[in-house]
Design a protein around this nucleic acid. Structure first.
Lengths: 154, 154
DNA sequence: AGCAATTAGATTGCGCGCGACTAAATCGAG
DNA sequence: CTCGATTTAGTCGCGCGCAATCTAATTGCT
């Protein structure tokens, strides 16, 4: 399978194909590209899909907590949430006991979308084509990198 | 280290934190964020840095080949290359024997930047904090995902 | 109580990243 | 040789993604 993948490279090399960071960058983009046509049927972009995943898991979340879960800044989330609201998938309201906070709630349509989305992770899982062990290893290593690089818990 | 990371999840789950795709997305962004301050000293963004890596490896490349190496569309590369040219790091010229093609060459400044960039991969490698074995495994799995998802060789 | 410091969310500016499209050059079947 | 198909870059529109900055609300210190 692999030609010459064993010369101590990767740590100090300037070769593009040796860089873990490039493999990460390319893999991430290729996966979101693979998602695009599936999510188009749901009327979602990939980051919007991740927000919906988070909301299906736990409804009535503040923008702050959503940002923490997704590791996204409010400068990214605010416009994205505005678009989800315009699509009538979520609703935003200021919290009464703390007017700084904005709570995101699923609309009926937003909650209903969950069923249609059920097939998506399966399809992507198949497309990625990793064994369960490889999948677990990949997740472990990616979380480790994220943790090490940001210096925080996931 | 891991709390409960062993319930057959990952394949069909809708839980955000179970998704390999999310781990990928989060890791990729966290790494580029970590690069940002280092690259700022070079006057480069992260994708620009990847382009320069490719050019340091092989100068005088067509936009087409650059796109193939980086897996980027011309709609992404064209404006990026325009900015690198404005920064006097590269030069673009139409190929004489095929006027469709545009060849990218490093300027003196672009070639010289390589030395200053030498410390960057080492610093990032340390920040990611993987053992050589983990680094190799991660690269292998990420390339595998990219291959499977795009249906092509890296 | 009063006021500085902190926190939450939003806005702005800029650079991707890609799909859809365009223009120009080249290729190729007849 | 010619005309339609293909290839190569580029433009445009839109949605991120983030640093920097802003406003408003809350907290905390005295």
């Amino acid at each position: 399978m692999d030609q010459d993948a064993h010369h101590a490279a990767g740590q100090g090399s300037l070769l593009l194909q040796d860089q873990l960071c490039f493999a990460l960058y390319a893999a991430s983009r290729s996966v979101t590209t693979r998602y695009r046509p599936l999510l188009e049927e749901l009327g979602l972009t990939y980051p919007q899909y991740l927000v919906m995943l988070a909301l299906w898991e736990q409804d009535s979340v503040s923008v702050r907590d959503l940002g923490a879960a997704l590791r996204l800044e409010s400068s990214t989330l605010s416009p994205l949430l505005k678009r989800l609201e315009a699509a009538d998938l979520i609703h935003r309201e200021r919290r009464a006991d703390d007017e700084r906070s904005v709570v995101i709630r699923l609309t009926r349509a937003g909650a209903d979308l969950r069923e249609k989305a059920g097939t998506v992770p399966v399809a992507i899982g198949e497309a990625m084509g990793l064994t369960p062990e490889q999948d677990a290893t990949a997740k472990y290593l990616l979380r480790l990198v994220t943790e090490n690089v940001t210096g925080s818990r996931p």
